[in-house]
Structures are given as structure tokens and as C-alpha cells.
Amino acid sequence: VSQRAGLLELGPAAPVGGAPPPMSPAEKLDPLPDTFILQPPVFHPVVPYVTTIFGGLRAGKMVMLQGVVPLDARRFQVDFQCGCSLHPPPDIAIHFNPRFHTTQPHAICNTLQAGRWQAEARWPRLALRRGASFRILFLFGHEDMKVSVNGRHFLHYRYRLPLSRVDTLGIFGDILVKAVGFLNINPFPEGGSEYPVGHPFLLGSPRLEVPCSRPLPRGLWPGQVIVLRGLVLPEPKDFTLSLGDEAARVPVALRASFANRTLAWVSPWGRKQLILAPFLFYPQRFFEVLLLCQEGGLKLALNGQGLGATSLGRQVLERLRELRVSGTVQLYCVHH
């Protein structure tokens, strides 16, 4: 998955409590303000793509896709899933499926429950075209989902499964996705100005025990990416991501201290290299840590913002055999 630092380019910001204004696909896009973004955006994901929706879905959330329909596209689908298991397959609360290969291109919405599809809902006038760019907005209400394409209302689909069960987004088929955004229709629902508070997943949703340890059988190599996603707990003390070798030594660790709001690289014997950047961990806020392994060290991004790098020799990187995570966080994803 390719990511970049900075804000998600999703078009002009909506007025508080309102929907985004219409726009042309060719119109230059401007970044949305931080307050609308509920979790880090994803840029140029490789399809098929499956990701966690931090905190699940609820009324007032939006998911936005920007991309292009290939000239030879037959069909693609966007699934809002209840989990991400392969066997058995998860329930799909909302299945959005444009089809281009038929005599009359159309879109299907449906729900998969206990391995069985329910009755299809069909829209014959497809608002997407082969070879054309698009901006699709999924807006989740209390009783149904509304979909707009390039700023124009396209369809609405009434829920057949509880929206609260949805915690995973899946994108499959013939589609080139440039960006995926997870937004809030109104960033100030109670008159506040803070980044929206996150809540832990429902009981039974996937989560990882902390402290958490993962083996790195082949060490690290240039181009490898480590991704951590989680939620900072209400009264946090610290957070540490450490990389150790076979002798149980820790050549490098990333440590966040909530007491003095500092982020630092910690090398052997406790030497600290402060990261001179805004402290982006907040209580009850979701976070994403991304480490990119490159020649000479590790490059760090937090919540989509690049925060610099630390130096490590290639031989040191190759000898790293364990990834450990500890601290006052709830962890949902460790990918390497």
C-alpha cells in the first residue's frame, strides 16, 4: 500500500452540518481540514484492498473514494463488511457493485448474511463511465446509506443489518483508487473544536493484546513497511515500538511520552534523539504509525504526516528479528 504525508485531497470542505458542494471530476481539489478526518487517509491502495474502519460505522460518518474507472472495466465492488475473516466469509452489510459490461450499465446494492445474498436492489442509470475519473461519497444515516457520484445524488440503500456491526472496508474488481478518506459530516457535533473522539470496537471485534510481539523471520530490508493502527487509551502514560535482534538487544525504539508530550528515537544504552515535530498522539484518538525501511535507516510517518528518519546500517536492519509494541494503547493492526 502506497501512502504519502499530508492531508487527503478530497475537494472543498463542506459547511458544518452540510454535504460537500457539487464539483467536476476535473476540478482542482483542495485539502479538507483536519477536523473532518476521522482516521488517516489512504493513497493509491493496491486493489483488492481491505482495511479497518476505526471505531466502525455510525450515522454521520462518510467514506469517500477518488479514482478512475479503467477503459476495459467490467465491474467493481465496495463492501462494508462485518469483520475481515476469509473462512467463513464475513457478513456484508452493504455491497455496492457497479457493472459496466452489460448492455445497459447499472449498479447493484445487496446484503450478504450467513453466506447468503438477499434480494438485489438495482439502479439502471449508472453515474460512472469507463475511462472517467470519479469522486464517490458514501454517507451513512440512521436508516440508510446515500451515495453521490461527482457531487450528484445517485442512490440510497436501506440497511438490512445493523450499521454498528460494520468495521471493515473492502474494495475489489476493476477500479483504480487514488484516495480513500474517512470523514465526519459535522466535525463539531457538540460545539467543540477537538479532533473527534474515538471509541473502542464492540465486544468480539478484532483487537490485539498489549504488550504485543511479532517475529521478523527475515529481518528488515529496503522497501519493507511496518504499519501499526490503534487507539490511545483515556489516561495514557507512554507508547513504545521497539525492534530487537536475536540476542534480545534493542538497536532502536520509537517512544512517545505523554507526560512531557515528546516523541523520540531511543538507541541502545538509553540515548534519545528527540523528533522535532508536533506531538500527534492524543487520548481517545486513533493513530497510525508507518515505518518505511530504506537504505540507511527507518523513515517515520504518524497519522499520514512524515516525521523524519533515524539512521541504521543495513546489516543492523537485516539482524532485526522481533517487533514489540507496549504502552497505554488499544492495538487493532500490526502489519509488516
Rank of each mutant, 00 (worst) to 15 (best):
V1R: 11
L7A: 15
L7Y: 10
L8D: 05
E9Q: 13
G11Y: 07
V16R: 15
G17M: 08
G18H: 13
A19G: 05
A19Q: 10
S24G: 10
A26R: 12
A26D: 12
K28E: 12
P31T: 02
P31A: 11
D34Y: 03
F36K: 11
Q39M: 14
P40A: 15
P45E: 15
V47C: 10
V50A: 10
A59L: 06
G67E: 08
A73T: 02
R75V: 05
F76C: 08
D79G: 00
F80R: 00
F80G: 05
F80N: 09
Q81M: 11
Q81P: 00
C84M: 08
S85M: 10
S85Y: 00
S85C: 08
S85H: 10
L86Q: 14
H87D: 15
P88E: 07
P90H: 09
I92L: 06
I92D: 08
N97V: 03
H106L: 13
A114G: 06
Q118T: 11
R122Y: 02
W123E: 14
P124C: 08
P124D: 15
A127N: 10
A127W: 01
L128R: 08
G131R: 07
A132L: 00
S133I: 00
F134C: 06
F134T: 04
I136K: 01
F140M: 03
F140E: 02
G141R: 07
G141T: 03
H142G: 00
K146E: 08
S148N: 03
F154M: 07
H156Y: 06
R158Y: 04
R160K: 14
L161N: 07
L163Y: 02
G170F: 01
I171Q: 03
I171R: 05
F172D: 09
V177P: 01
A179R: 14
N186V: 04
P187F: 09
F188R: 15
G198F: 04
H199W: 12
P200I: 05
L202V: 05
G204R: 04
S205T: 03
E209K: 15
P217Y: 09
L220K: 02
G223I: 06
E235F: 06
E235D: 12
P236C: 13
E246G: 09
V250P: 01
P251N: 15
P251M: 15
A253M: 00
L254F: 03
S257L: 11
T262E: 13
W265N: 05
W269H: 14
K272C: 09
Q273R: 13
L276Q: 13
L276N: 10
P278R: 13
Y282M: 12
F287S: 07
E295S: 09
G296N: 08
L302T: 05
Q305P: 01
T310F: 01
R314L: 11
L323V: 03
L331F: 04
Y332N: 07
C333V: 08
